[in-house]
Design a protein around this nucleic acid. Structure first.
Lengths: 336, 336
DNA sequence: CTGAAAGCGCTTACAG
DNA sequence: CTGAAAGCGCTTACAG
């Protein structure tokens, strides 16, 4: 690989001039500019970004922590939008993919990103992970913004109003006439001290009508939705509606109800959360809650880049509103 | 952020010694080692990997190009396994996420990874992208290994025998008694000069029984599976089985057949490809072809790392065998 | 507009 | 086992 010295020799200029041409900012005469570019082309020169980063004291890259399982379409879309927003701002993105689900792996992967001197960090992760990160964050670390987690951590963040989403979709079921409605949880949700999760919206909607909430544990995956709903229906066969914590769990629940011969929505209504594309093509299509992923990605990148450089890290909190999407999986309860 | 100089001053040793301690290879006396570590801990020092990379002439990171839509569980799993294999070998992974689907974005993103001086590149991409990369690859570029594409490119690669998979699953349908079987394609597949894709396995199986192949265009997504199968059944209502190019398309097709009141598998048999988890929980669960993703990831990382450093880039080709997974979406054709 | 020098934070020989 | 010097490939003031 040719270096800046090779180009300088070939074009008969100093390395400072070659540098000026490739940075594009400092003034260079048209003639030398041409000469340098020609030399670079002939040699196949490409600036070494790592050397540039060392000299400049910044990398022009932001780190993006993603969950281990990136097949979750919410995070997949988030990553995609983040990548394009960053590119628009002339930043590279360095993706961090924890090798497994443990908090330690998460922290190690963020550390690896920081050792590579990213200018900022976007944390697409659960609030427990973000909290663990915040707790061990060394002073002088690059700015970080959490995206998509509950706003329970003292870190700049952009999140959706999950509680409101949970309220919206539960209320949709209650308005249809359902009274025996269970909530299928994801881990860490019930019992958290901060009433901002999806399940708290469910609880608020139930409480408002004087109904008894029923929280049923799960982990928010296809498999968990399937096995947990089999158990749930065995114990509470009189339920007429299920609010799943996300679309994956709802899709697993859909399969369980199919096997149990409890047609959706004729016998049981079912809702998801996240408005994932798989829920559009399931049979029946899922009623869900849409999170404005593109907007969240864009605002997160903007916020992070505004924090880069300026130390005044005011803990900004941006909360966006989710939206109910009614499809085929919900209907009035059948008369008994 | 403290630098190696700060630690050296604090521990009253030379920077060379601090460097030795943190590299862990060169001999250092236990006493100075302790002193250096204590100083580093006190200051919160973390080695600057970017400076190290510049000095060493290598980054100890491999770049991994992923498709724009990483929600495809095949690539998601691949990425996950690659990340853990790389970490086991003490390599970081730098993920490249093209901001959109164009070949230009793909090439720009690989270039960005190369400018950041990754030691090797894993290309999880279609063979047309890999071919475009190979065509413009400068001499002296880091070694690259393609994974998961058709073995039609002159690049070291690890791929599945897709033709065999297509043959396997088509033959499964033919053995059940089906005779009017269509193949739902993904772009770039029909008409390629290299008969190694899934659709060629289908063609071979059909030919072997003297049956007329029917290739139907599509793009291999949920949406395309849905809309294209509506069109297909309108024109060829007598089909008794459909071979989809992948599980996503099959899931879209499943929804279309549901709307058309053509129950699967009672009226029409349907197969997927990739053995994605969504196909396990669909109703009916999909008969599919399983690709050994973990093995592919591991062999790809191994191959790439063996290529790093040694210039003898022999175009190695590793082809792994897929496996038929029979579930609920296939059955004998109903008697007419 | 252009060049010579110093420096970014490390590692690599080379001495001792 | 340890240190002083040079160098990795760039950029940043400083002169001219």
């Amino acid at each position: 690989m040719p270096s800046i010295y090779d180009v300088a020799r070939e074009a008969r200029v100093s390395i400072a001039t070659v540098s000026r041409v490739f940075r594009g900012t400092a003034p260079v005469s048209a003639a030398t500019r041409e000469r340098v570019l020609a030399a670079a082309r002939a040699l196949g020169y490409r600036p070494n970004r790592i050397a540039r980063a060392l000299a400049e004291g910044r990398t022009r890259a932001i780190g993006v922590m993603l969950p281990t399982d990136i097949s979750n379409p919410f995070y997949a879309q988030l990553a995609q939008h983040v990548a394009s927003c960053a590119r628009t701002a002339s930043y590279d993105v360095a993706v961090g993919l924890p090798p497994d689900d443990s908090v330690e792996s998460f922290l190690e992967t963020t550390a690896a990103l920081e050792e590579r001197q990213v200018d900022g960090l976007l944390l697409c992760a659960s609030c427990s992970r973000v909290a663990a990160y915040a707790a061990r964050r060394p002073q002088g670390a690059c700015p970080a913004v959490a995206v998509g987690c509950l706003p329970t951590v003292d870190v700049p963040l952009v999140s959706a109003d999950e509680e409101y989403g949970g309220y919206l979709i539960t209320n949709h079921l209650l308005a249809l006439g359902h009274r025996r409605v269970a909530f299928l949880c994801a881990p860490g949700q019930p019992g958290t001290a901060h009433p901002q999760g999806r399940e708290h919206g469910y609880i608020r909607a139930m409480d408002a009508r004087g109904l008894e909430p029923l929280l049923w544990h799960g982990v928010g995956t296809l498999e968990s939705g399937y096995t947990r709903v089999r158990d749930l229906m065995a114990e509470h066969g009189d339920l007429t509606a299920l609010v799943a914590v996300n679309d994956a769990a709802a899709l697993g629940a859909l399969r369980a109800l199919y096997e149990l011969k409890r047609p959706v929505p004729a016998h049981v209504s079912l809702t998801g959360f996240d408005n994932v594309v798989q829920g559009v093509y399931s049979a029946p299509a899922l009623t869900s809650v849409d999170l404005p992923v593109a907007e969240m990605a864009e605002r997160a990148v903007r916020l992070l880049l505004s924090l880069v450089g300026c130390d005044g890290t005011v803990p900004t909190r941006i909360i966006v509103r989710p939206r109910l999407v009614v499809r085929e999986s919900t209907a009035p309860p059948r008369p008994h």
